[in-house]
C-alpha cells in the first residue's frame, strides 16, 4: 500500500488539537511546555468545555500560554495565579478554572498563594511544570533545583549549606485538607504522555465535583537551561529528577 493511500482523511488517527492555535510556540526545541499545552487543549476539547474554561497563565516561559490554547485567559503577576483563580472560580462557579505555573512561579514567589488556595480547597485545577530551574530569566536556581545541579546562580552546583534543599511541593500540599487529587507525571514518552493526559482529564473532572483542589505536577525538562540536547535532557530527567520527584499519584480523596 502506498503512503499516499494511507494518508486519507478516513485513516486519520492523530492530528494537532483543534484548540491549539496556529501561533508558532516560542518555546525552545523539545520543551515540555508545548506537549503539556497540547494535552490541556485535548482534554478541554474532549470534555466539550471550551466555552466554560478560563486559564490563568503565570510569569515565566509559559507566560504566553494564552497565545497557544484557544480559550479565555487571564495573565497573572509572578506567583499570583492561584489568587486570580480563587476569585474567578468563586465568582463564576460554573466555569472550569485552571492555573498553569512553573516552579519559579509556584514554588518560590507564589508559595503563599498556592498553599492557601490548596488549604481553602478551591475547586480549581493547578498544572505545575517542574523542571528544576528558571527558564525565562536564563537558567537560575529554582526551589526545586536538585542538590549538586548547576545553574547560573549555583555555578558550582546547588549546595544545601548555601542554597537550602529542594522543595517537594506536591507532597507538602498533600497534607492540606483542601486538596482532592495530587499526582506527579511526565511527558517524555508516549506512554507517559497518555498517563499525563488521563491525569489532567481527571483533575478537570474532579474540579466539577466541588471536592477541592486538583494538582497535576509535570516533571519536565529545560534542555536550554540544563545545557543538554532535548533527548539527553529526557534521559537526565529520568535518572535524576525522578529520584527526588517520583512519578505517580500522591493523593486521591475518591479512592
Amino acid at each position: 500500500m502506498d503512503i499516499a493511500d494511507i494518508k486519507r482523511p478516513e485513516n486519520l488517527v492523530y492530528r494537532k488539537p483543534a484548540l491549539i492555535t496556529d501561533n508558532v510556540m516560542h518555546y525552545c526545541p523539545g520543551c515540555s511546555h508545548g506537549t503539556v499545552h497540547k494535552l490541556i487543549a485535548e482534554v478541554i476539547e474532549e470534555m466539550g468545555i471550551q466555552d466554560s474554561t478560563i486559564g490563568i497563565s503565570p510569569v515565566g516561559c509559559s507566560v504566553f500560554a494564552y497565545n497557544y490554547i484557544d480559550i479565555d485567559w487571564e495573565e497573572a503577576a509572578h506567583g499570583r495565579a492561584p489568587a486570580l483563580a480563587t476569585a474567578t472560580k468563586r465568582l463564576c462557579p460554573d466555569k472550569h478554572v485552571f492555573t498553569y505555573q512553573g516552579d519559579g512561579d509556584l514554588a518560590s514567589i507564589g508559595t503563599a498563594e498556592i498553599i492557601h488556595a490548596c488549604s481553602r480547597g478551591e475547586n480549581i485545577v493547578v498544572i505545575f511544570i517542574n523542571n528544576g530551574i528558571y527558564g525565562m530569566t536564563g537558567g537560575q536556581m529554582a526551589p526545586t533545583t536538585l542538590i549538586g545541579m548547576k545553574t547560573s546562580t549555583t555555578p558550582y552546583g546547588r549546595d544545601p549549606k548555601l542554597n537550602g534543599f529542594p522543595m517537594v511541593i506536591a507532597d507538602m500540599i498533600a497534607h492540606l485538607d483542601g486538596t482532592a487529587y495530587i499526582t506527579r507525571q511526565s511527558v517524555h514518552t508516549a506512554a507517559a504522555v497518555r498517563k499525563a493526559k488521563s491525569a489532567i482529564r481527571k483533575a478537570f473532572e474532579y474540579s466539577e465535583k466541588n471536592i477541592g483542589l486538583s494538582f497535576v505536577e509535570i516533571v519536565a525538562t529545560c534542555n536550554s537551561g540544563w545545557k543538554m540536547s532535548p533527548v539527553d535532557a529526557n534521559a537526565w530527567m529520568v535518572e535524576h529528577m525522578f529520584r527526588k520527584y517520583p512519578i505517580g499519584d500522591i493523593k486521591d480523596v475518591l479512592k
Binding site: 494511507i6 486519520l12 494537532k16 488539537p17 510556540m25 520543551c31 508545548g34 497540547k38 511527558v187
Partner: peptide
C-alpha cells in the same frame, strides 16, 4: 515503510507538527 501509525511520535511532539494516519 515500517511505520505502524502508533502516534508515539505525535504524542511526544511539543509543537504538534505531526499528523498520523493508520490502516
Amino acid at each position: 515503510d515500517a511505520c505502524i501509525g502508533c502516534s508515539a511520535c505525535a504524542l511526544v511532539c511539543p509543537d504538534s507538527v505531526i499528523t498520523v494516519y493508520r490502516v
